[in-house]
Nucleic acid binder design. Structure first.
Length: 271
DNA sequence: ATGGTGGTTAGACCA
């Protein structure tokens, strides 16, 4: 098992449209593993060759036409494992792979939680009901993983900013999907159920503001800085002590034709 | 202020 191990997560909002940006990120930051969300790319059209040429020849992908889609790219050997159909839907919102072997093996789970639509009412908005059901399933998954796989890592675009300082204005976002009490409580319960370590918040505790997403609809995103922390890295209870450092690549939001999310990176020292 | 912008894919749908 390599030590240190760097894992990144990035909602790229179309892997084909932003292929050059992903390659630039890999060249500049060379993480060992990159987990992507919103690839929006069927498996037979995924740019496997371009990533292999960049040194990321080990790949686990799960894509459908048009929406969602997740992938794990690695420059060290990985073994793809189960893809979960969350909420019973084959909609490419989870993929997992194992890095390392035997007692040192680490299983990486990459999730893309539904955004949930605009109206935070599960009765009136089926997309919000889907999101809440997904989070409940994430709680059950966390409980099982805590018991069976304490060396797991869970990353992804969870589309929820759980803490007060994960958003630019706690009060103004309490009724905005991504920061409503039912969502933030749900995600906090998933963390508890899994005894997960919220890696970026260990490194940057509250009340520091930490964001990984800025809306496309906000002009002058940098100056206004109305961000939210939607992208997360959770370490299983056996890996919490290995956390070495982390980084949020805010500058990629300023690249030409950017994703609205930026990469979140964590480095573990596995001794 | 119920707009605003962006991606996929061909008229909406999703974020």
């Amino acid at each position: 098992m390599p030590s240190p191990l760097t894992i990144a997560t990035w909602n790229i909002n179309s892997v084909r449209l932003r292929l050059d940006q992903v390659l630039r990120f890999l060249l500049e930051q060379h993480p060992d593993v990159l987990c992507l969300q919103e690839t929006k790319c069927p498996d037979d059209l995924f740019p496997r060759g371009a990533f292999a040429k960049a040194g990321y020849g080990y790949q686990a992908i799960a894509g459908i036409k048009g929406y969602n889609g997740v992938a794990i790219l690695s420059r060290r050997p990985i073994t793809p494992c189960e893809k979960r159909d969350m909420c019973g839907k084959p909609d490419a919102r989870h993929i997992a792979a194992t890095i390392g072997q035997g007692a040192d093996a680490i299983r990486i789970h990459n999730f893309y939680v539904p955004a949930g639509g605009d109206l935070p009412d599960p009765e009136a908005n089926p997309k919000f009901a889907h999101k809440l059901a997904f989070v409940e399933e994430l709680q059950r998954f966390s409980e099982t993983t805590r018991r069976n796989d304490p060396r797991a890592i869970l990353v992804g675009d969870l589309n929820i900013a759980p803490l007060e300082h994960d958003v630019w204005s706690h009060k103004q976002l309490l009724d905005v999907v991504s920061h409503t009490p039912v969502e933030t409580r749900g995600l906090t319960e998933a963390i508890s159920a899994g005894e997960w370590v919220d890696a970026m918040r260990v490194l940057k505790p509250e009340p520091e503001k930490v964001y990984s997403w800025w809306s496309y609809r906000s002009p002058d995103w940098d100056k206004a800085d109305k961000g939210r922390r939607l992208d997360h890295v959770w370490l299983g209870r056996a890996l919490g002590d290995t956390l070495h450092s982390g980084q949020i690549l805010r500058e990629t939001r300023g690249w030409e034709r950017p994703s609205d999310h930026v990469p979140v990176m964590v480095t573990l020292d596995l001794g």
